[in-house]
Simulated assay, not measured.
Amino acid sequence: MAQKIVAKNKKAFHDYHIDQTFEAGMVLNGPEVKSLRAGKVNLRDGYAQVKDGEVFLYNVHISPYSFATHVSPDPLRVRKLLLNRQEIRKLIGKLHEKGIALIPLKIYFIENGKAKVELGLARGKKLYDKRAALKEKQTNREIERDMRNKM
Rank of each mutant, 00 (worst) to 15 (best):
G99A: 05
D129H: 13
Y16I: 15
E118V: 14
R77P: 00
T139R: 15
Q49C: 08
F56P: 13
I92H: 01
M151C: 08
E97Y: 09
H96D: 15
L57S: 08
R131W: 14
I100G: 04
K34A: 13
I18S: 04
G30D: 12
Y108H: 03
A24S: 10
H14F: 13
N149L: 12
N140G: 15
K98D: 14
K40H: 07
M26W: 00
E54M: 10
T139D: 10
K98T: 13
D146V: 12
F67A: 15
A48M: 04
E54T: 06
V6C: 04
Y128G: 13
I103T: 01
Y128T: 13
L134W: 01
I62D: 09
V6T: 06
R37D: 14
K150Q: 07
A24G: 03
K125A: 09
E144Q: 13
L102S: 06
A132T: 05
N84D: 08
I62P: 11
Y47T: 11
M147K: 15
E144P: 02
D146H: 13
I103G: 04
K34S: 13
A48K: 01
M1G: 14
L105V: 04
F67V: 10
E111Q: 11
M147H: 05
I107D: 02
G25Y: 05
A122L: 07
N140R: 15
Q49W: 05
S72N: 15
L95C: 00
P104D: 09
K125M: 08
E142F: 05
S66P: 00
L105Q: 02
T21N: 10
K8I: 10
L102H: 05
A2T: 09
R148S: 12
R145W: 07
L82G: 00
D52F: 10
K90D: 05
K90Q: 08
K4D: 08
R44I: 13
G99V: 09
G93P: 11
A12E: 03
P64C: 06
V50A: 05
D19S: 05
H96L: 14
I103D: 04
V117G: 05
L28K: 06
R37S: 14
S66A: 15
T69F: 07
E23G: 11
L121D: 00
N42K: 08
